[in-house]
Design a protein around this nucleic acid. Structure first.
Lengths: 137, 137
DNA sequence: CCTAGTCACTAGTGTTTTGCAAGTAAGTGC
DNA sequence: GCACTTACTTGCAAAACACTAGTGACTAGG
């Protein structure tokens, strides 16, 4: 059972719908009905079961927004929001692989935007190879 | 049917195994047998069918590495390699969500490394909100 | 030649997960 | 009381998946 971190991550969100649900919730908390139209094509039982699982896994919390008719809104936890970067890269890739040239541009100059590695301490970007993994400490 | 780029991407790699296969192939091309041990737990029929599908979708190509007994090695296309960034973020997230504090550190200073947006033209990092999408240019 | 062994799959079989259409329970507006 | 909305649940068929065996091409040994 020496599964890597990627396998651990995919065990939680490695299905057809979970990432789309998380993506829909990135902008703001949504009610069940809003989710079911935001994530188009999902069946109601699948949405319910995914929400339940995402809650168990700590990516999503449900919060009551109306007491009298008890109604819930679903919002992301910090853990869930941590997927934002990966999702934007995945969306970029999906766009590129489908003909769209690039997804995002810098407001100020119109130039292409890409993701780079950034060292918090040095406060500068790094190249591949400037880093080591946690494993051997 | 206004499916977003993320949905388009996940239509190709949004199942339990495809991303793990791509990840295994990132380092170098692998033969079928190597893949089946690298991606642990995958059944042979599933591996074969995923490889076929990834080939149809243009993420993977098979190349003959031995003529006499005809043997193939599977390697990523440019499109497939384009997933590298998303996979590393996903792996990072998977590690963090499972207790590991952070996955990568800067060789020189030992500081934590994170992913940031970078404008190619300005050659500097951006904050969220400094950008717009392709949609209406 | 005959046998054993590897490699890369394919085939047969349950079991599990989805997708789809309906239905239901709680509450609200009139 | 009656229609209507919201947020699901239920039932069933269809698809995907997992597990185990088996096959075809070849190779190496005796």
């Amino acid at each position: 059972m020496e599964s890597g971190p990627l396998a651990l991550g995919l065990a939680r969100v490695g299905d057809r719908w979970s990432l789309l649900i998380v993506d829909a919730l990135l902008a703001r908390p949504l009610k069940y009905g809003e989710l079911s139209t935001a994530v188009e094509g999902i069946a109601p039982n699948i949405l319910a079961s995914r929400l339940r699982q995402l809650e168990r896994d700590g990516l999503v919390v449900s919060r009551v927004y109306s007491e009298r008719p008890v109604r819930m809104a679903y919002e992301l936890t910090e853990t869930g929001r941590g997927l934002a970067g990966a999702l934007s890269l995945l969306a970029d890739w999906g766009a590129r692989a489908n003909g769209q040239p690039a997804a995002q541009f810098h407001d100020a100059c119109g130039g292409e935007v890409e993701q780079r590695l950034w060292c918090r301490t040095c406060e500068r970007v790094l190249d591949d190879g400037d880093l080591h993994h946690f494993d051997e400490v």
